[in-house]
Design a protein around this nucleic acid. Sequence first.
DNA 1: TACTGATGATCAGCATACTGATCAATAAGG
DNA 2: CCTTATTGATCAGTATGCTGATCATCAGTA
Lengths: 151, 151
Amino acid sequence: MPGHLARRFQQIAVAVFLAEVEAAGFDLTPVQYAALAAIAANPATDQITLAGLIAYDRTTITGVIDRLTQKGLVVRRASARDRRSRELLVTDEGQRTLRAITPAVEAAQRLMVRGLTKTEARELIRLMQKAIAAANDLSRAPLREGAAERQ
Amino acid sequence: MPGHLARRFQQIAVAVFLAEVEAAGFDLTPVQYAALAAIAANPATDQITLAGLIAYDRTTITGVIDRLTQKGLVVRRASARDRRSRELLVTDEGQRTLRAITPAVEAAQRLMVRGLTKTEARELIRLMQKAIAAANDLSRAPLREGAAERQ
DNA sequence: TACTGATGATCAGCATACTGATCAATAAGG
DNA sequence: CCTTATTGATCAGTATGCTGATCATCAGTA
């Protein structure tokens, strides 16, 4: 049952991530980390574009940014060109957090495939990527490449 | 990033499941389906044991059973041996639903790996199983085998 | 310019998951 | 028998994810 395995693997991935990150002294969820890293890599993008970059639903991203803002890691800035959209920026503390948390995040990635050999882990990643790419548009929140690759 | 792929694959798996099941005229979530099937396969088990069989958190299962009960697919029965526990049973309608919904569930399982060959899909399943087995105890809701295999 | 449609963001509502607490009932010990 | 620890179930609170709606704004067209 691929569906059941998908749920279980994700459940373990989240648990491992939270445990490693908390052990390192941080309070960030996997979802918040991914958003923070994506904002750092794409400064001043609006929320919809950000959601596409990490395949989040647009209604989910609102709450995630709320919490990142509350923690002082991200700021929302009104866009000059389009008054509907908010540009997102990582604060200095957000940058520091991102750098400091990286080892814990990497440890979590290794831990969740600790039962596999390096070759097997690479193969699992390849197969998940391939399956996901072929089914990308079947979810409400598909991955949308950056503007550069879009056209 | 295995963690990100895990989240995305699960996201797609849920979307595909809901779409197929709704197209077949049913209103059941993946989680509700798994619980219903597990109760049918293990009649009169208590909620904690059921949670272990499908790796759900004990606090999550309460709400899932609430909703299955509300839909008339499952009944809670007070246990004669232990007045703390509730024995779970599938109703006749639950049995009918389970039979009728099976083709849609199977279609969803195929759809979520439609980008892979049969061999690749089998390999993905094998690798996920292996990774999950080695990390089973890292989540709060580990899989607990049935009484037969437990000792 | 006025209208129409599309878009960015948010909201209410619902279903998973989890943390940690509570409560009743049971089991184990002295 | 009584105390203590454990266990089955539930609850409050929080964080994803989603459906569908709303609101303000923008873009394109008549």
